[in-house]
Amino acid sequence: MTRTTARRGGTRAPAPARLHGEAYEESVSRLWLTAVRLGRPTLDALRKQGWDDAEIEDITAELTARGMLVPNVEGDAWQVVPPAEAVLRHIERWERRISLARATASELDQIWRAAVGDGRELQPAGMELLKSVADIAQRVRGMHRLATERLWWALDASAASLALLEESATEEGVLPVRSGVDVRIVVDTALLDTPHAMSFVERAQAAGHPVRVAAGLPFSLLLCDARAAILDLSRHDPVGDGSLEARRTGPLKGVEALLQEIWVLSTPLAVVVDTGTGTVLDGVPLDDRDRRVLALLATGASDQLIARQSGISVRTVERRVRYLMDHLGAATRFQAGVQAARRGWL
Rank of each mutant, 00 (worst) to 15 (best):
T4A: 12
R7F: 13
R8Y: 04
A13T: 13
P14S: 11
P14I: 03
R18C: 04
S27K: 15
S27V: 12
A35W: 02
R37G: 08
R37E: 08
R47Q: 04
W51C: 06
D52R: 12
I56L: 10
D58S: 11
T60Q: 14
L69Y: 06
V73H: 09
W78P: 11
V80I: 10
A86R: 04
V87G: 03
H90I: 00
W94A: 12
A101R: 04
R102M: 10
A103C: 03
A103P: 02
A105K: 10
E107K: 13
D109H: 04
Q110H: 05
I111R: 15
W112Y: 07
A114G: 12
A114P: 00
E121W: 00
P124Y: 05
P124F: 06
G126S: 08
E128A: 14
K131F: 03
S132G: 03
A134F: 01
Q138E: 09
R139N: 07
W153I: 01
W153P: 00
L155A: 07
S158R: 03
S161H: 02
L162A: 08
E166V: 01
E171M: 08
V177A: 10
V177I: 12
R178M: 11
R184K: 14
V187G: 07
V187F: 08
H196P: 01
E202Q: 12
R203E: 09
A207N: 07
L217T: 01
S220N: 06
L221C: 08
L223E: 07
A226R: 15
A226V: 01
A229K: 05
L231D: 00
L233S: 05
R235H: 05
V239R: 15
V239G: 13
D241V: 10
G242M: 07
A246Y: 04
T249C: 04
P251R: 08
L252Q: 07
E256V: 00
V264W: 03
S266F: 08
P268K: 11
L269Q: 03
D274L: 13
T277L: 13
L281W: 03
D282N: 15
G283L: 11
V284S: 13
P285F: 02
D287L: 05
D288S: 14
R292W: 07
V293H: 11
T299P: 09
G300I: 11
I306S: 14
A307Y: 04
G311K: 15
V314Q: 15
R315H: 09
R319N: 12
R319C: 06
R322T: 13
M325F: 03
H327E: 09
A330Q: 09
T332F: 07
T332L: 09
V338N: 06
V338A: 14
A340I: 04
A341G: 08
R342C: 03
G344W: 05
L346K: 11
